[in-house]
């Protein structure tokens, strides 16, 4: 069979571009570590300054990854939430009081969610496994990570299908319907969704078996990931904030 040699360099080039990466990104392990640091920081800190620094640094990390839309969206969301909390604290009413408690809880975990969103949107599945495998992580850990990251978009796709189908059948997921028949509404979403997901899961695992997923050889990786100076800077910055949080963030 004749091989078209013209396309060899182009493929080589495109795979190189993918692997060397003109993408600006932190090492996946750095991202996991920072995620952990943020998590602890959020629960230790009791101070607005510390929290603001944390949010600012996450926004900075987003800008570094060129995730501008994500940065703007999250920044606006956080400001809106902060304003709403200020507002609800001024009103003396039990219902509003409960709402403000919920909001304060949400604000606590917000930084973690922000960084998790960044992690998901800027990390290829292959990069993540490559990174973990350099530490000889067993495949019992790496494979589930592949599957989880693969499943998020699937859930999104399948739920869209279910919602469309419900609309065709005249089932409306309105606020009022949820209030009057919450059980029924959940059933209408969850049952078909779970059915579909379990079908996908079964087919996916059958396909996985034919691609050597339960081999006992040491797994290798197409991607190569390396720590850089930027990784260290980011880790140091977030760690400094964690220490600040532990000290009670007490400048004043």
């Amino acid at each position: 069979m004749k091989v078209d040699t013209r396309c060899v360099p182009s493929v080589a080039k495109s795979t190189d571009a993918l692997l060397v990466g003109d993408r600006r990104t932190l090492e996946p392990r750095t991202k996991l570590l920072i995620l952990l640091i943020i998590n602890i920081t959020s629960f230790v800190q009791s101070n607005v300054l510390c929290e603001t620094i944390c949010i600012a640094m996450i926004i900075f990390a987003m800008l570094y990854h060129r995730s501008y839309r994500l940065a703007i969206k999250n920044l606006l969301l956080f400001i809106a939430m902060a304003l709403l909390i200020l507002l609800t604290l001024r009103v003396e009413n039990t219902v509003v009081g409960m709402l403000s408690v919920v909001l304060i809880m949400a604000r606590k975990i917000f930084p973690t969610f922000m960084f998790a969103a960044l992690l998901m949107s800027t990390t290829q599945v292959g990069e993540m496994t490559a990174s973990l495998q350099t530490m000889h992580t067993p495949r019992q850990i790496t494979i589930p990570i592949v599957v989880i990251m693969r499943f998020f978009p699937t859930i999104k796709e399948e739920s869209r299908g279910v919602l469309d189908a419900a609309k065709v059948r005249g089932i409306r997921f309105t606020f009022w319907n949820f209030l009057s028949a919450p059980g029924k509404m959940m059933e209408y979403i969850m049952v078909p969704l779970m059915m579909q997901l379990s079908v996908v899961a079964e087919e996916l695992s059958a396909a996985a078996v034919t691609r050597g997923i339960d081999s006992d050889k040491q797994r290798t990786s197409l991607y190569q990931t390396r720590f850089g100076i930027v990784d260290i800077i980011f880790i140091l910055l977030f760690s400094a904030n964690l220490i600040f949080a532990f000290m009670g963030g007490g400048i004043w």
């Binding site: 993918l18 290829q124 691609r211 050597g212 991607y223």
Partner: peptide, 20 residues
Amino acid sequence: SQFFNLDTTNEIAFGCENLG
């Protein structure tokens, strides 16, 4: 329901990676 990676290149590599 038969791919595991979200990018195509890594998907072609997936089986090879599994087999070391």
